[in-house]
């Protein structure tokens, strides 16, 4: 055989064709008795229906968690989980935290040192090469 082929798997580029929101589920835990979840209860009553209607791709679960602080738990496509305690926050604050979890990719927070853009494509200029471009006379 003059030629063989190497097996590979095409890599996903989320957002190039279709966009899959990384946030898969959001679970809202509340308590009916403790005052720390007053804002959470207000959010569940007033803002959650609009939030759910604007994000139909997220599975939303509401569950009581008596005698605990209210918490929002998000599960992501990559298998990770993030949770934010929303004790003593008002309705608007809870909504902001829910939006924060919705927009997250689920990856760990890390510092973007060096180059902030990662690309699969080679650079337009190519790798630097001593034999091309303007000749340097020594």
């Amino acid at each position: 055989m003059p030629l063989a082929a190497i097996k590979a798997v095409a890599k996903s580029q989320n957002g190039v064709g279709a966009f899959i929101l990384p946030c898969r589920t959001l679970t809202f835990h509340y308590c009916n008795w403790w005052g720390s979840s007053r804002g959470m209860n207000a959010f569940l009553k007033s803002s959650l229906p609009t939030f759910a209607a604007r994000n139909p791709q997220i599975e939303i679960l509401v569950a009581p968690r008596p005698q605990k602080h209210p918490v929002i738990i998000a599960n992501y496509i990559n298998g990770s989980q993030r949770s934010i305690c929303v004790k003593n926050l008002q309705n608007e604050g809870v909504r902001e935290k829910a939006e924060l979890l919705r927009g997250s990719t689920g990856e760990k927070n890390r510092k973007l040192d060096g180059r902030p853009v990662k690309s699969l494509n080679e650079s337009v200029r190519g790798v630097w090469d001593p034999f091309h471009g303007s000749k340097i006379q020594i």
Binding site: I6, A8, A10, Q13, V16, L120
Partner: peptide, 12 residues
């Protein structure tokens, strides 16, 4: 839309 560099599949 997935990325595949076909030039890397050759094995001469």
């Amino acid at each position: 839309s997935r990325h595949l560099d076909i030039s890397t599949l050759f094995d001469f």
